[in-house]
Simulated scan of single mutants.
Amino acid sequence: MTLTMRTVLREDHEQFRDQVRRFVSREIAPHHGQWEKEGRVPRETWLKAGREGILLPAIPEQYGGGGGDFGHAIVVIEELMRVLATGVGFPLHSDIVAQYLLAYGNEQQLARWLPPMARGEKIGAIAMTEPGIGSDLKTLRTHARREGDTYVINGAKTFITNGLNCDLVIVACKTDPQAGTRGISLIVVEAGMPGFSKGEALDKIGLKAQDTAELFFDNVRVPATNLLGEEGKGFGYLMHQLAQERLMVAVRSPAVMEAMLEQTIEYTKNRVAFGQPVFNHQNTRFKLADAKTKVVACRVFVDHCIGLHFAGELDATMAAMAKLHATEAQGQVVDELLQLHGGYGFMREYPIARAFVDSRVQRIYGGTSEIMREIISRSL
């Protein structure tokens, strides 16, 4: 199955793909290796992406966005994954942070934050996970105390994508510690606010170009006007957005597998072992046949879920199944493809090696595979 055979995306999505592919090939693919060494994507690249209309593709034009829909967001994700630009934080910025602002922000907030985000001048992040407790929102320790027309925030967050580069971060915090999940609110903290600091880049095994960091809040005074939506409604907001966020994770999987399958077929046809191309060995062809079958099955299922989302029919269970199936398949397929490279598959100069380590986190972030199984089991 190829991209041209797919029916879930429209012609305007594919036209946008041409634009994104040119940008990624010119401005990202040649430099991603260097960014992996530096641990972040330079701001100049964000500004270039803004000028090219790559950022906030699904945000209305009146707020500086591309005026598209989730299909345009999918195209950006797929084109980044096609070249293994797994460390570029555009999707989280454009399709999670900006979508939260669009869904729950007031007109003043939208006019203030979205246009500079679309231009790449302000980089967005969202902070839920905390040290020691992970993503269990019921046990959040970061709290915000209301004092007049400000909130005073104290706490810490970890594993924050775009953490070093971020200019604004949506912080999940307790505004009423006694109210459980009904006491959680979302407050936007901006870079430069006294008491808001960023830790060193976290040393991850993969996603090396992604600036992932801890964030610290020490009596940070934030204007009450930075409250996103209503106080105490934060947990509901987070839950409402999870289906799309998990689908975004699932979308990455077939794109990576397709790219690595194509690269591995080419490698095995050119690599000679025991007097003939590796591809000529029956075991190799059978392994590739299995991989092709898994990749196509994953693509068809993920595209089906994309179609459900377009129709407003993607529920939490189906989103969990999409993420579970796609990410588990990705881990299996990439591992098998690496094996076909032999010792060279263990060298980071080969794309399959980078795909192998970067794929591992797919089964963790956005909700682990175990959490996905728990969600699915509730529908049985």
Rank of each mutant, 00 (worst) to 15 (best):
V302H: 06
Q263Y: 10
F216W: 04
T142P: 00
V169C: 08
I59F: 12
P30E: 12
W113Q: 03
I28E: 03
G195Q: 01
I187W: 04
E130V: 11
H32V: 15
Y63K: 05
L102W: 09
Q332W: 10
V76I: 10
V97N: 03
L308P: 03
D211T: 03
K292Y: 13
A156E: 06
Q362H: 15
V272W: 15
I352L: 06
K122N: 08
G331E: 13
M81I: 04
A29F: 05
T4Y: 07
Y151M: 03
G183W: 05
L227Y: 03
A103Q: 13
M239V: 11
A291I: 08
T327K: 03
L80I: 10
V296N: 11
V251Q: 08
E231P: 06
Q178W: 02
H143C: 09
L288R: 09
A127Y: 02
K208G: 00
E231V: 01
I77T: 04
Q330G: 15
G232H: 12
G367D: 09
V220T: 01
L101S: 00
D218H: 01
E258R: 12
E349H: 15
T142Y: 02
V152G: 12
G89V: 05
H240M: 12
I375N: 13
Q109S: 10
G236F: 05
I352N: 02
Y100Q: 01
A224V: 14
L114R: 07
E121P: 02
T368C: 06
A111Q: 15
R271T: 15
K122A: 10
L238A: 12
V20Q: 05
G343W: 12
G124M: 00
R17V: 10
T139Y: 08
K233W: 11
P194L: 02
G134H: 11
G180F: 01
A144H: 03
L55H: 01
R182M: 09
I352H: 04
P116V: 04
Q62D: 11
I126L: 09
L92T: 02
E245F: 07
F196I: 00
A156D: 00
A316V: 04
T158I: 01
G71W: 00
G66V: 07
F356S: 10
L228W: 00
T284H: 07
I123W: 06
A111N: 15
L242Q: 15
G53Y: 07
K48W: 00
N154W: 01
I59R: 05
G367I: 06
R221S: 03
E61T: 14
L324H: 12
E79I: 02
T45R: 06
R145L: 12
Q34H: 11
V41A: 01
A98Q: 00
Q339T: 13
H31T: 01
T317C: 09
L110A: 08
E349L: 15
G39Q: 05
M239W: 07
M81D: 10
F23T: 04
Q62F: 04
S359I: 03
Q34M: 13
A319S: 13
A297I: 04
Q34K: 14
F159E: 05
R40E: 01
K233M: 13
T129Y: 08
R348H: 13
I77A: 02
R22P: 02
P177W: 07
R299E: 07
L247T: 03
E374K: 15
K138D: 11
K233N: 13
A118T: 07
L261G: 02
